[in-house]
Structure formats: C-alpha cells, structure tokens
Amino acid sequence: MHKALRLTALAGLFMAAIAQAATPIDVYRDPNCGCCKSWIKYLEANGFSVNDHVEPNMSALKQRLGVAPRLASCHTAVIGGQFVEGHVPVAQIRDLEKHPELAGIAVPGMPAGSPGMQTGQVHQAYQVIGLTRDGADRVLASYPADSSL
C-alpha cells in the first residue's frame, strides 16, 4: 500500500508539473466562430493554457491592440504583450518572444489548411507576417500549398 501511495503522489506531481509548464495565452473570439474553437483546441494540444474570451466587438479589440486591418483574421490572441492574429502555427507563436521589436504576428484571412482551418483536403499557401512596432511588415514564415491535391 505504501508503494501505491508513492506512485499516486508522483503521478500528482507529474500532472502538476505539466499544468505549470503550459504557456498561458489569451484568445479573443466572436461568439459565433467555429474555427476559433478549433484553433484553441490546437493550441491546447500543443502545450498552451488558453484563457478563452468571447468578445462582442472584435474590431475595437483589434484596433486597441494595433492589429493592422490588412492583417486581420477572425480571432486575436495576446501573449507576452504581443498580438497573435488569426491561424498562426505554434512554431511562430513560440518564437515570438525572440522578437521584442514586433507588435505581433498574423496569418491574414482564413487560409484553408492552416491550424484550425483543416476542414477539407485543400491547403492554401499562406505566410506568417510580423508587424514591427513602427508599422512595417515582414514575412517570418511561408507555408506552401499542398500540391498533391
């Protein structure tokens, strides 16, 4: 019995360590958007602890955070004081802290095949754009279309 208690305690510590290791991120979304929920599930499956905020006025939120209209998508997240607009892959979100010169990053629009938008076999090409604090864009990553379809 003593051994079982130790194993239970170790399992509890392990689960607590996993919970603490999750990276917190705030996601703001329209209450009627289904792909936003899919992107949230994607984040959670990849080690993020999501604070889900249903936001009735996404336009005002995006403006307040400095999301340029040309970069807009359906949902907006905030991590470490920087915005994450749209269906951005986890790799670029994790690299964002290495770019303090950026106000945020974005995947404009809602490209099919991007995280949270895997609803069919079509995979459009898309880019992850960084927006500098002085308003300049730069491409941080490019994802090609799936040419096998």
Rank of each mutant, 00 (worst) to 15 (best):
A145T: 04
N46F: 03
T76I: 11
S59K: 12
V54G: 08
T119L: 10
A9D: 15
I79Q: 04
A60M: 14
P100I: 05
C36G: 01
P69C: 02
V50P: 08
K41C: 03
Q121A: 12
V139L: 11
S142A: 15
N57T: 06
T23N: 12
L96K: 06
Y126P: 09
E44H: 00
G113I: 07
A125Q: 00
A45V: 05
G113L: 15
L65M: 12
G12F: 15
S73W: 00
K62F: 07
G113C: 10
A91M: 04
D95S: 15
L140K: 14
N32D: 11
D52E: 07
G80H: 10
Q124D: 13
M110H: 04
P89N: 15
N51E: 14
C35Q: 14
S142V: 15
M15W: 04
A136I: 03
L102E: 02
G120C: 02
K37R: 03
A103N: 09
G135Q: 00
K37V: 08
Q118M: 14
L131Q: 11
A17Y: 10
M117L: 08
L149C: 02
R138Q: 13
E55M: 10
R138E: 07
A19P: 06
Y143W: 06
R70Q: 15
L131Y: 03
H75P: 10
W39Q: 11
L96N: 03
H87P: 09
A103H: 06
M15Y: 15
E44K: 01
N57G: 04
M110F: 13
H75G: 00
D30V: 06
A106K: 07
Y28H: 01
H53I: 02
V107C: 12
A125M: 00
Q82H: 08
R138H: 13
G130W: 01
I25W: 01
V107L: 09
G120T: 12
A106T: 05
S114I: 08
V128Y: 09
G104I: 07
I40F: 01
P108N: 08
H99R: 14
P100C: 09
P69T: 01
S59F: 08
Y126G: 02
L61T: 12
A22W: 06
Q124H: 11
V54N: 02
Q92M: 12
D26A: 05
R6Y: 13
G81Y: 04
T8I: 14
Y143R: 03
E55N: 02
